[in-house]
Design a protein around this nucleic acid. Structure first.
Length: 670
RNA sequence: GCCGGCGUAGCUCAGUUGGCCAGAGCACUUCACUCGUAAUGAAGGGGUCCCCGGUUCGAAUCCGGGCGCCGGCUCCA
């Protein structure tokens, strides 16, 4: 066990400038306390000792690196006093929470620098986020900085980092804090405190000062600005105050910080690499899709991408067959009146495309459900037909606001792998159960094993009665609980016609994407007066379930491209093998090989150009084909091919049949 | 829709303070080479400098409007 250290704050300030003003420091020792270290061992300290003392007691190295202390799971300042029996963990670079503390510190330094350069700037909030931090400002006189101002701000920040200014915490009554920030003309801070007082009954708030800058802040902070070894400002963006588009737009400055220049450089390098797998770059490059200004937000599928689209559809169709679904196709353009009946006109008109033919107004369908309802209603149904499952790969068009479009991930026209199940209330749980299972199977086929489930309940803007909503939400909960699934609840995030379950996947970069959805709808069958004839010979109203497994085919493929960085597994690759003749005289043999492989179901091309083998391999690597088949004199005389893959390089000669069998194994085995 | 940035050849980008026929690499075409596991060489074609209007003797360059794209915010029933 480490020895205790007697310590007097006034005579022995920490070399890092930590705040250690504890006038009532015990000497001689009055009542020692014992805290517990992460490995379970006890550490005896003087009463009133702080996190900094604990770090010093453990070792000088730790004392030098210490940034904060985690007490019973909560991160605090090093200067905060510890109490007997607490479990503590010193936060140092590389430990959990360390970067958040550092980045929060850096955000305060950013605000300090901004106030140096533009006095009168109003500050709001500046938290750490996943890869860095931001701070939101309102600059004086309508000025707004641009990216070119970031360098100046960085220079001003560097001066404060170099000065190694301590972060000093103080507490003040909420009323005094409001007066103070009113006096400084900081209305955003005033509003924050007023809300704390009103919503949480807060009486005192904490302030942090570094250099000349004093900020309302809960903390924790590191000991001083000198700990910031490497930082960078990334971009300027607009952001609404409190995320409300009806309120003031502030100027947000994004940045990031690390404990070393090397870490920062590695971070910037990772961003570069992420750009290399951006589906918007890979799409045109690999001949998958392109986006053209003639149809903003509406992708053009190129030949390779169309193959990919069909392959993905086939997987969905396998699930349709397994689940007893029937596939339909409904019109793209429907009478405006239909959208009044469905309720979309009232709730969604601003996002719909309209067109007029003579006197009649039509709309491009933004959803497939009204079409499916028309199909259901077009004939009489018996209770024996239920559940009736109608699936459609439906192209929907939505006039998304400018500025939200993003590659394939947010488009104006996309294909839903949609289905509508008409059933009785008792059948809902079984159906939802089956849908959940189908989603699991499908996602795992594409290599996504981590599925997060979210239940969304009634939003403010909705149609239907309280009773219907309760029944619908209850049915979804029942199905999830029967499956024994973990799920989160998002209150108020349901659709206007019913509650829903959303399914999220996590990609190779750890990002989460919402894909599948399953929504219960009591409203639509009513609006379309859908009925089935029951055992009792009377008409009854069916329940409708909307469900999509992948959601948007376009979006899912965008995610797939980034997940695989364009290098698809063999079963998904639009072109599985490219045949590379060594010289022009081998083109004939290459064509024979291609023909035999195609007969065996292998998707392949021949590179007939009069280029060197090296050049053809280079281009095939860039094209990310799973296999390259080199054919020259040797292969031709033996009736063979030389197989090269990206992962394994030159794999030597193989017979055509053996290669075809290998592909077949890979396709069925994955 | 809001804030900031950007728009030059198919792609990635140069283009001084407004001034000759607007450039490079890759790609493309042609010719030569006929090549054994990541780029053979040469020649050539290709631009409404996003669009419209303005300032000017003169605009890719400056100003206004529009369209599109990028990074965010909001939104995504």
């Amino acid at each position: 066990m480490a020895k205790n250290r007697t310590y007097g704050a006034e005579t022995e300030p920490s070399p890092e400038g930590a705040i250690v003003t504890i006038p009532w420091v015990a000497w001689p020792r009055m009542a020692p306390i014992t805290v517990k270290l992460p490995d379970g061992s006890p550490l005896e300290l003087d009463d009133g000792a702080t996190g900094a003392d604990a770090a010093a007691a453990i070792g000088p190295r730790l004392a030098k690196d210490a940034l904060a202390v985690r007490v019973n799971g909560e991160v605090r300042d090093l200067a905060a006093p510890l109490a007997d029996g607490e479990e503590i963990d010193i936060v140092t670079p590389g430990r959990p929470d360390a970067l958040d503390v550092l980045r929060h510190d850096t955000a305060h330094v950013l605000a300090t620098a901004v106030l140096d350069l533009w006095p009168g700037t109003k500050v709001s909030i500046g938290p750490p986020i996943a890869d860095g931090f931001y701070y939101d400002f309102e600059f004086p006189d309508g000025f707004r900085p641009s990216d070119s101002d970031l360098e100046r701000i960085e220079e001003a920040m560097a001066a404060h980092v170099k000065a190694d200014e301590p972060f000093e915490r103080s507490e003040i009554s909420a009323a005094d804090a409001i007066e103070r920030f009113k006096g400084e003309d900081q209305p955003y801070k005033v509003e924050l405190i007023e809300d704390l007082v009103r919503d949480e009954g807060t009486e005192t708030v904490s302030l942090y000062q570094n250099g000349p800058f004093v900020d309302l802040c809960r903390g924790p902070h590191g000991p001083s600005t000198g700990r910031i070894r490497a930082f960078k400002l990334n971009s300027v963006a607009g952001a609404y105050w409190r995320g409300d588009e009806n309120r003031q737009m502030l100027t947000r400055i994004y940045g990031t910080a690390f404990f070393s220049k090397k870490d920062l450089e590695e971070h910037l390098e990772r961003i570069e690499q992420a750009k290399a797998r951006d589906h918007r770059r890979l799409g045109p490059q690999l001949g998958l899709f392109t986006l053209l200004p003639d149809a903003p937000g509406m992708p053009f599928w190129l030949p390779n991408g169309t193959v990919l689209l069909r392959l993905v559809e086939n997987e969905v169709r396998r699930q349709l067959a397994r689940g007893g679904y029937q596939e339909i196709k409904t019109p793209q353009v429907l009478d405006e009146d239909l959208w009044h009946r469905s309720g979309h006109w009232d709730n969604y008109a601003e996002n719909m495309f309209f067109t007029q033919v003579e006197d009649r107004r039509f709309a491009l369908k933004p959803m497939n459900c009204p079409g499916a309802c028309l199909v259901f209603g077009s004939e009489r149904h018996s209770y024996r037909d239920l559940p009736l499952r109608l699936a459609e790969f439906g192209l929907v068009s939505r006039n998304e606001r400018e500025g939200v479009l993003h590659g394939l991930l947010r488009v104006r026209a996309f294909t839903q792998d949609d289905a509508h199940v008409y059933c009785t209330l008792d059948q809902v749980a079984d159906e939802v159960d089956a849908i959940c299972s189908a989603i699991d199977q499908l996602y795992s086929r594409f290599g996504f094993d981590e599925v997060r489930v979210e239940l969304s309940t009634r939003p403010e803007k909705s149609i239907g009665t309280d009773e219907q909503w309760e029944q619908a939400e209850g049915a979804l909960r029942e199905a999830l609980e029967r499956q024994g699934r973990d799920y989160e609840v998002s209150p108020g995030e349901g659709t206007f016609y019913g509650p829903k379950i959303d399914f999220h996947i996590t990609d190779a970069l750890g990002r989460s994407w919402q894909c599948g959805t399953c929504q219960i709808d009591f409203q639509m069958p009513e609006r379309f007066d859908l009925v089935y004839q029951g055992e009792d010979n009377a008409d009854h109203r069916p329940v409708m379930i909307h469900r999509a497994l992948l959601g948007s085919m376009e979006r899912f493929i965008g995610i797939l491209i980034e997940h695989h960085a364009g290098r698809f597994p063999t079963w998904l690759a639009p072109v599985q093998a490219t045949i590379l003749p060594v010289a022009d005289r081998h083109n004939g043999y290459a064509a024979q090989v291609a023909s035999r492989l195609r007969d065996a179901g292998v998707r392949c091309t021949v590179d007939e150009r009069s280029e060197s083998v090296g050049k053809k391999i280079h281009d095939a690597e860039v094209g990310k084909y799973p296999y390259m088949l080199v054919v020259g004199d040797r292969e031709e005389s033996e009736g063979a091919i030389s197989v090269r893959s990206h992962a394994e390089g030159d794999g030597g000669a193989e017979s055509i049949d053996a290669f075809a069998a290998r592909i077949e194994r890979e396709v069925s085995g994955s």
